[in-house]
């Protein structure tokens, strides 16, 4: 591996020239925020001392804690490879996907803090109720709406037209952006970055005919105008979507439609 690669610098000393041999291991402390309303309304922090490997992710540490230490630790995960968007959580105060965060990239000298994403009601441990998130997602009608007759073959689109909304097609609905937004934290009434990103994906799709309807929905008291451009969402997105830019483009589209 050359020194020019863009990988984040490893914070754990891995012996040089160890490729092909055993994967180096190190000890970590995983500090998980626990909440179980069936036992107590109190929140507590549990520490798990684990021996993990240089190839392990935070999700592997959670698995180890659940499978070998305390079976009651609860979290969502499905594909475990950064595609399904189930395991968004706050890791060391940042919204990340547990399955995309390598332990060796974190500071292992201190406990690794794992909390549920903020702004959504916690059901148990790291599991939150995603319903408020999906409620605003449904409101922006995240599906193709086209006028006229259905074509007999596929709907053709030029490369340039596809490129226009390429960035926002990457969303996996993990809620890392919406639950990092301080405006959403206040009262949960703001549509949230994820809903606007998915509206953007259809508003700028040349095959879709309901852009005006979606712009009208987002031109709301709780719509795009509540965005304060704090860029928390762009920083949190595990897919690297330029979320704040997408919101700004929707704002401009609403203004261009009015004037």
């Amino acid at each position: 591996m050359s020194a020019a690669t863009a990988e984040p610098a490893s914070k754990v000393e891995l012996p040089a020239g160890s490729s092909g041999g055993a994967v180096p291991s190190f000890d970590i402390t995983l500090r998980v925020r626990r909440y179980d309303p069936e036992v107590s309304e109190e929140v507590r922090w549990d520490d798990f001392k684990l021996t993990m490997y240089g190839t392990d992710r935070v999700l592997d540490a959670l698995h180890k804690a659940k499978w070998e230490h305390d079976g009651s630790v609860s979290f969502r995960r499905s594909c475990a490879h950064g595609v399904c968007g189930s395991d968004a959580m706050r890791i060391n105060g940042r919204n990340r996907l547990a399955c995309k965060t390598l332990l060796k990239d974190l500071d292992t000298s201190k406990p690794i803090l794992v909390e549920p994403i903020k702004g959504l009601p916690v059901e148990k441990d790291l599991i939150v109720d995603m319903e408020p998130f999906f409620q605003s997602y449904r409101e922006i009608m995240p599906f193709l709406i086209s006028k006229g007759h259905e074509p007999t073959k596929e709907r053709i689109q030029s490369v340039e037209d596809r490129e226009r909304f390429d960035d926002t097609t990457k969303c996996i609905l993990c809620a890392a952006c919406t639950s990092s937004c301080p405006v959403f934290w206040t009262d949960g009434q703001y549509f949230g970055p994820a809903a606007i990103v998915n509206a953007h994906r259809f508003i700028f799709d040349s095959r879709d005919d309901a852009g005006d309807m979606r712009l009208e929905i987002l031109n709301d008291k709780e719509g795009v105008w509540r965005c304060r451009t704090t860029f928390n969402c762009s920083e949190a997105c595990p897919r690297g979507i330029q979320v704040t830019k997408a919101i700004a483009e929707v704002k401009q589209a609403i203004l261009a439609r009015q004037f």
């Binding site: 319903e131 949960g188 105008w225």
Partner: peptide
Amino acid sequence: PRSTSQTGRVAPQYLRSGGARGQFEMLAWL
């Protein structure tokens, strides 16, 4: 699970209110 609301699946404090249409927020932003 999710029975905290009388109206449905979403806890009342998270229910999205109807939202106020109109141009005020846009004009304020501009």
